[in-house]
């Protein structure tokens, strides 16, 4: 009868997703290829993050913020991806994996730098293990500021891409 109690939990919980905020105004500085409208597969790359941004990315894809309702989905392979979500400063050991992940992603693709570390090295700037910010290594199309960025900000950035 375990499934009956699970059914009770499902009924009591109802819908926990937050009401959808209005669609963000399109940012003219971001060029989104037409092919990616409405459906975006995201591959997450941790280039040397403290795991703060990972928790927020996880929350954005969780049931409460539910970015999947706008057509974004996490995938397991860069070959399936349209968007690479890069978090953290790029450490020396992650330079080559990051470059190769971008090369393994089919065109048209976008690179999103999530968090202050990915944008400008944040508090780790000048560290001996740091090779640079994400834009020092690969071309970045979209940035999400914050340390760590709120899930709403990550959702808004991905909605820029899906246009939904």
């Amino acid at each position: 009868m375990r499934w009956l109690s699970l059914l009770g939990v499902i009924r009591r919980t109802g819908r926990i997703a937050e009401p959808a905020p209005p669609r963000p105004a399109p940012d003219p500085s971001v060029v989104v290829p037409d092919a990616l409208r409405g459906s975006v597969q995201v591959r997450h790359v941790d280039a040397g993050s403290c795991n703060g941004c990972e928790i927020e990315v996880g929350a954005a894809f969780g049931p409460v913020y539910d970015v999947e309702r706008y057509g974004a989905r996490l995938v397991a392979s860069p070959r399936h991806a349209d968007v690479l979500a890069v978090t953290g400063v790029v450490t020396h050991n992650m330079v080559e994996p990051l470059v190769r992940t971008v090369e393994a992603t089919p065109e048209p693709r976008l690179v999103v730098a999530i968090g202050d570390c990915a944008r400008n090295c944040g508090m780790f700037a000048g560290g001996y293990g740091v090779a640079g910010s994400v834009s020092d290594i690969v071309d970045v199309d979209l940035e999400v500021p914050g340390c760590p960025p709120r899930p709403e900000a990550i959702v808004a950035a991905l909605r820029q891409v899906t246009g939904r």
Partner: peptide, 21 residues
């Protein structure tokens, strides 16, 4: 307890994949 991407999402996914290199 999610909202879900809508029942038409697989059509969008396939259409997008066909336009990718």
């Amino acid at each position: 307890s999610r909202v879900g991407a809508g029942v038409l999402q697989p059509y969008r996914d396939v259409a997008k994949l066909l336009r990718k290199q």
